[in-house]
Design a protein around this nucleic acid. Sequence first.
DNA 1: CTGAAAGTCTATAACGTTGTAGGATGACCG
DNA 2: CGGTCATCCTACAACGTTATAGACTTTCAG
Lengths: 337, 337
Amino acid sequence: MAVTLKDVALAAGVSIKTVSNVINDYQYIRTDTKQRVMEAIANLGYSPNLSARSLRSGKTGVIGLAVPELSLSYFAELADSIIKAAERCGLKVLIEQTGGDRARELEILSSPRLQMTDGLLFSPLGLSNEDAHHLNVNFPLVLLGERIFGGPTDHVTMSNVQSARAATAHLLSKGRTRIAVVGGHEGEIIGSAGLRLRGYQQALKEAGIPFDPRLVAYTTLWHRSNGATSMRELLKTGVEFDAMFGLNDTLALGAMRVLQEAGLRIPDDVAVIGFDDLDEGRYSLPTLSTIDPGRDEIAATAVRILQERISGHDASPREFEARFQVIERESSMLPTS
Amino acid sequence: MAVTLKDVALAAGVSIKTVSNVINDYQYIRTDTKQRVMEAIANLGYSPNLSARSLRSGKTGVIGLAVPELSLSYFAELADSIIKAAERCGLKVLIEQTGGDRARELEILSSPRLQMTDGLLFSPLGLSNEDAHHLNVNFPLVLLGERIFGGPTDHVTMSNVQSARAATAHLLSKGRTRIAVVGGHEGEIIGSAGLRLRGYQQALKEAGIPFDPRLVAYTTLWHRSNGATSMRELLKTGVEFDAMFGLNDTLALGAMRVLQEAGLRIPDDVAVIGFDDLDEGRYSLPTLSTIDPGRDEIAATAVRILQERISGHDASPREFEARFQVIERESSMLPTS
DNA sequence: CTGAAAGTCTATAACGTTGTAGGATGACCG
DNA sequence: CGGTCATCCTACAACGTTATAGACTTTCAG
């Protein structure tokens, strides 16, 4: 059925290796031979069998990307950036969804199915720092996200602590002092929630404002609905606040919706900032202030260093932190006090 | 470096074919032989080389999914559903982004790089019905979306016309008669925009209401910003309306934001319905009425029939239409007139 | 004119897996 | 006891590609 090198070779009257050489731009081929082979290729509609090629060469030209879920906007936009970055390097991306489940994440690290790829970009959610040793795998692996630091692999992350501190400082600069937080993870120290919460506390401390634990609403998955529920519970406790820091945009949008239902004005009664710079926050009502965590930079860096590892670059694990930016929109647009 | 069948065979003192047989659950193997082989596999940490396997078997266990962009929420959620459906069939998904660009879409249909997959789920945006013949490819292909009908391949789609008619009828049932539309594509007949617009017109006709072309706002890509811009222009024209049908949720949310900026109340002044049932619409303010186009059904059907084609099912092309549902939320919650 | 070097091509052996064909053992039936 | 059959295993050949080694030409300096 399928046309192979052999068929082309036969048609062009050369050996299969010559055809292979033409395809791989080997230096020493006469122009007319090349011509003849090219014609045969075109006539027969030959295209190389990639399975055979990767068996022989040991490379597939495909990288894996493991994320919790594409229906979480942050990961959809991350995947978008990564696919584009990979394409620039001539790589395809195979996406795996873990649901943020620890067991599934561990399974992916040991799954033989991933051998169809040259390496893996891995953004875990269920793993924690104690699982770091599981990252000791025998294939190129680049870690994304903030669940594990100091692990045995290259790691690309955002400046969680610093940017959360900047986000909080931004609200403080507006004269707000009672800043609620939505999306904490109970007891977490490392992880997006823990780190961002730490940044929040640092900013408070710098401003000389005591940390009030009642202002932190905890939740599990960072889904829209959880942002809404958390805010609803926070309001029920009666604790007062004049600003809110959503640990990501999705949470902030869900929470904002509940605030407005409760008749609170944004930013007048409650100034709001999120985290992630989702497209969505640009068209919400009000538009959402946020942190741009440098997603494209993360994607490009991750793909680049994964490719370095694939081509055999051997060095001790490196940590990369993307540049961030505070983006002020309506939800916190107030005169600076 | 890597452990192969040969190594395992040597360690277990059997032939490589026996090891292969153990792995593939061949019937006739003595329990103790099996045991010995399994142990050797575990000890050496063997896992099969998938390139070799696919070269031999002609199957890769990977399917391609080509969509415009994952940062468009609809496609992110579609990809999510498809990856989950594929997983249930033991398939991996390789995602390709076309940007909705016709040239790139055509390229994908002829790209040899896709040979790393067993088949393709293809959701074009730039192609039109005249390009149907390009779908005549020599690999299993299932078409998604509404750009091409009656093409040479299986096709899974949503009931665009019917469900748009139902969406419009829903607004009409609330006593609204001046229904603006956001997201039309100039001159389009086939395609999500064209079909949904047709459904809109059908509903009007059934209700005996004349079609007013001034109520239709046109746009290109269905991005949030375009929904906002379109609505801004519509308001500028001064044409009156008491309801709006966003041809998808993203557009509707963008437009809703502009309506509210303009001081119009939803649903009181303008009742709104969207299309797609994005998660986002559940937490917007107000929550967004919409059409659930049956995304999971589309995903499951598409994967199933692609798999049928891969396993050699030969029959004339089939068309599938998913069941839809009108979902009433706050943006159109009014007493039925 | 000669030998070395550069240019052009080919035969053959891998890569790691599965399919085919068949050999060896023992059980069971007539 | 001979033959058939099920059971268990193996040797070998493929799948389509690229790497290796080398054969044969041509070029060109000495």
